[in-house]
């Protein structure tokens, strides 16, 4: 399958990565190459095979449904690029 520039731009948008228009042709070509490699998977007969969700048959561990930590506002905000008055600060979201 060949990926066109429009698809490449759509994928970049979905991934929230800014790609300059002049970079799109090369990106589309890379996607085409990688997806071409992946398309070998179409040769495999997967009829009746369930998609694997876990490599080990064990059930996921469930801890007791109780509060185990919290009250760490300062620690949580410590690495934020912009934190004010106990909150993460971001550009205006709602008009």
């Amino acid at each position: 399958m060949s990926i066109d520039e429009q698809t490449a731009a759509r994928v970049a948008k979905l991934a929230r990565i800014k790609v300059e228009p002049e970079a799109l042709p090369a990106l589309a070509q890379e996607f085409t190459n990688i997806l071409g490699f992946i398309e070998q998977l179409n040769e495999v007969d997967v009829e009746g095979i369930e998609p694997m969700t876990s490599v080990t048959p064990q059930r996921l561990y469930r801890r007791s449904d109780v509060v185990t930590d919290g009250d760490q506002q300062e620690k949580i905000l410590k690495n934020a690029p912009d934190a004010r008055e106990g909150f993460f600060a971001v550009p205006k979201v709602v008009e």
């Binding site: 990926i3 994928v11 890379e30 990688i34 992946i38 998977l41 179409n42 095979i49 369930e50």
Partner: peptide, 30 residues
């Protein structure tokens, strides 16, 4: 990293999830 994030976004996107992601997980089972 950008390349892989975007490839991942593509194979999980609507219309391709079964063709790529689920197929790969079935091959993984094999």
């Amino acid at each position: 990293v950008q390349r892989r994030v975007m490839i991942g976004t593509y194979v999980l996107s609507a219309g391709f999830y079964d063709a790529y992601y689920n197929r790969a997980r079935r091959v993984r089972a094999l």
